[in-house]
Simulated assay, not measured.
Amino acid sequence: AMRAALDGELARTRISLVSEGRSTAALPLIERLLAVIEQTGAGERVAFSLACDESATLPLASDDAAELLGPLLENAARHARRLVHVAVETVGDRRMLIVGDDGPGLDSAQRDEAILRGARLDSGGEGHGLGLAIARELAEASRGDLALARSPLGGLEVRVGWTLSA
């Protein structure tokens, strides 16, 4: 409980320091994070597919982008049956970061609960239920939004979007 409280306070402090006007090249960051996750038990048993243009950027400093994306990739790998898909794309005037898996997914009530700080839908395993909440808070701190939906792969899809500056 103490560790969860400490992690929560550190995350709130970090979010308050998100730098405006920063950006990070998406592809090298995602590739680095995937290389780490592929070395874990969950990452070894799933395949990752990646769709990201070399010029794509995320509107966050590198550390903040890694803190947002890391938990999304870890969750997807942990819950996927065989496949995790990661994409960065531009849709109209929005930059979208999409992480989807072929796991069991969440129903709409579970999706609403999953992004609350400290909410844990899986009572086993590691963690304190902060990953999705921190990702949502980082997205919002960088003027973006985070939404959970059913993935075309059948599991959970996390979509983080930012409006592009004109």
Rank of each mutant, 00 (worst) to 15 (best):
A87N: 12
A76V: 12
N75Q: 07
R150L: 08
L138Y: 07
I134C: 01
R95S: 13
R95T: 11
H79W: 12
L132S: 05
L146S: 08
R136Q: 08
E74C: 12
L97W: 08
D101C: 11
L72R: 14
S123Y: 06
S108F: 00
D101W: 14
R136E: 07
A139Y: 07
I98Q: 14
G125I: 00
G103Q: 09
V99R: 09
A119N: 05
L146V: 09
L130K: 03
E140H: 09
A80M: 15
L116T: 04
G100C: 11
V91P: 05
I115N: 02
Q110C: 02
H85G: 10
Q110H: 02
D107T: 03
D112G: 04
D145N: 10
D93N: 01
R95A: 11
A135H: 03
A114K: 02
E137P: 00
A141F: 08
L148I: 09
A135D: 04
L97R: 12
G92L: 06
L106T: 04
V86N: 12
G129C: 01
G105S: 10
A133Q: 00
D102W: 14
E126I: 06
G118Q: 05
A133K: 00
P152W: 07
S151Y: 08
E74A: 14
R82K: 15
D112T: 05
L121D: 03
A133C: 03
L130T: 01
R120E: 02
L148S: 08
A119L: 03
A139S: 15
